[in-house]
Simulated scan of single mutants.
Amino acid sequence: MQKWYILVFVNLILSCNREVEIPNGTKYYESFSGYNHPVQLINEISFHEVEHLQSYIRSTYKNQKLQVVEKYINNRLFFKYVYTYEKNKLIKVELSNNCGYNKTVNY
């Protein structure tokens, strides 16, 4: 019986930690402006606001640099930009969308 309680407790802790880890390095926005890269994200929203929106932008940061931008419409990925940097300078953007379009732009 004691092992069962420990297992439940560990699962509870892990699920709570997972909830905390989701926003870490990830931010959510209502939109973006322009098509220059990296895009300028507008109107940051909380992780919990996302479930009430039909469309939103999910962005991932690493070392304070924008790494990935994903636009979701009705909880489905609409497009994705993946940024690659070298010595803090943008060198490549990988573009893809839900229709199978893929393109790489080198800078």
Rank of each mutant, 00 (worst) to 15 (best):
Q40W: 05
Y5R: 07
T84L: 05
T104V: 15
H37Q: 08
L53C: 05
L95K: 12
V82M: 05
S33A: 10
L53Q: 13
R58N: 03
Y81Q: 00
L95M: 11
Y107G: 11
K27W: 12
E21I: 09
K62R: 11
H37R: 04
N63V: 04
F78A: 13
N98L: 08
R76N: 14
S33T: 14
N102P: 01
L66R: 00
T60D: 05
Q54Y: 07
I6C: 02
G34R: 07
P38R: 15
S46A: 11
K27L: 09
R76A: 14
E44S: 08
Q54S: 14
Y81D: 01
S59M: 04
K71T: 05
S31H: 04
E49I: 00
N97S: 02
F47R: 06
L14V: 06
N24H: 14
S31M: 03
K65L: 15
E19P: 00
V105S: 08
W4N: 12
K92Q: 13
Y85I: 02
Q64T: 11
K92V: 02
L77H: 06
Q40T: 13
N17W: 00
N24R: 13
G34L: 01
S31Y: 02
G100W: 07
V93D: 01
Q2A: 04
L77G: 01
N106V: 13
V93R: 00
K62E: 10
T26Y: 15
V20L: 07
N97K: 06
N88K: 03
